[in-house]
Write a protein that binds this DNA or RNA. Structure first.
Lengths: 212, 212
DNA sequence: TAGCGTTCTAAACGTATGTTTTAAACGTTG
DNA sequence: CAACGTTTAAAACATACGTTTAGAACGCTA
């Protein structure tokens, strides 16, 4: 019976899903509210009803999954820390880097859920100066600060400054991989194809480990 | 006499300068033609007069300096090659990577000319799927193809696929550094500041050399 | 100076945008 | 059923957009 008209509350969810995808593929300004509402099959004014404004929608898309991803990072860090303590040694560089990169890369390669789209959305949100995303960065900064002591411990030869630079570079590799994953085949004249999440993660982690 | 009204042809140049800067800081769609013409102090229709359309303007901004930058890269490669031949050895990995990264990084840190702005524009152009920038990439691909044989020779243990992935990652580090240079101070709680072009280049080259 | 192509100006065009408004439909609670 | 708060609907709002047009101003050459 109620198969045609979807139930109430998931209109909001559908808007988030659709706009997550649109914002992942194009800039904030070039995605119109009408574009979103048409594809989400809701009324034009639904965006302003649920999110107050287009800006509000953008932030809502971000918030919906950001906390979860950073939680996954900290969880991996925590597990690595426990393993290290049990073995009586330090957390390895590889584990640290892997903890930072695995969640976004795995999400990126996740076929089932909408996580893949979100990761591309995130990488693009970094570029949207206009849509006040300072809080986007703040949350990530907090997470990274939890990692820094570990880096310091096992890379005592590096200054704190060096460590921040390296984290900065790592994020660069990751974001670029995310944003331009489809271009690797063009760059390589189709020699390279997009691989599994594990392979891609390992490639990235190797590259960044050696860079440190 | 003619100090007040600028001479003829530099209206076109002023439009390019202004839009280069605006496109470097915001997305294609969020920069309006009126925005450009107002800041360039020219009539609204000047953009369409000189460049046909807003798209045409965007491409013109790209073309103006792209060839020069890629020429600089190839020039550095050529010089390194000559040095190597004179010494009877191979071009070092460091020199190869340096040849790829030095031009954009030096331009980025160049204070005098408008090159700094252009580099940020370039990094953003990569993201503009909408504004058909396939030719942007094509030219870079051609340049990289000139580098690949050198990489192959000195890193015979790597497959061609590996090399393309590494180039891909290098571009990621570079573009992210370019796009988010100002954020390193936020990330590091102001421990890191933007340094000189040489220092920044060396940091990047070191990171990428080790990653290879 | 007269003519002519180039450059600049002002105004208007049609369309698309984000948002607001007014009211209808809905679903739960009394 | 009646009343209420929530959600959806259609229409209109004012504004901003890229582009076009028609003509004036300019600078050069004959």
């Amino acid at each position: 019976m109620n198969s045609k008209k979807p139930s109430r509350q998931d209109a909001r969810e559908r808007i988030l899903d659709v706009s997550e995808e649109l914002f992942a593929n194009a800039s904030f300004a070039s995605v119109s509210v009408r574009n979103v509402t048409t594809r989400a099959d809701v009324n034009l004014s639904a965006v302003n009803y649920y999110f107050g404004s287009k800006q509000g929608l953008f932030q809502a898309v971000y918030v919906r999954r950001a906390t979860l991803m950073n939680h996954e990072r900290l969880q991996l860090l925590h597990e690595a820390d426990e393993r290290a303590q049990a073995a009586g040694c330090d957390v390895s560089l590889r584990e640290l880097i892997s903890a930072m990169l695995t969640p976004p890369i795995f999400w990126l390669c996740d076929q089932e859920k909408g996580y893949s789209v979100y990761i591309r959305f995130l990488a693009r949100a970094y570029l949207e100066e206009a849509s006040d995303m300072s809080n986007v960065l703040r949350q990530e900064v907090d997470v990274f600060d939890r990692f820094v002591p570990y880096f310091k411990k096992i890379k005592s030869g590096l200054s704190e400054e060096d460590i921040y630079w390296h984290i900065h570079f790592m994020m660069g590799v990751m974001h670029h991989t995310i944003n331009h994953l489809h271009r690797i085949s063009l760059l390589s004249h189709k020699a390279c194809a997009v691989e599994s999440g594990e392979q891609l993660r390992d490639r990235l982690v190797n590259f960044c480990c050696d860079g440190f």
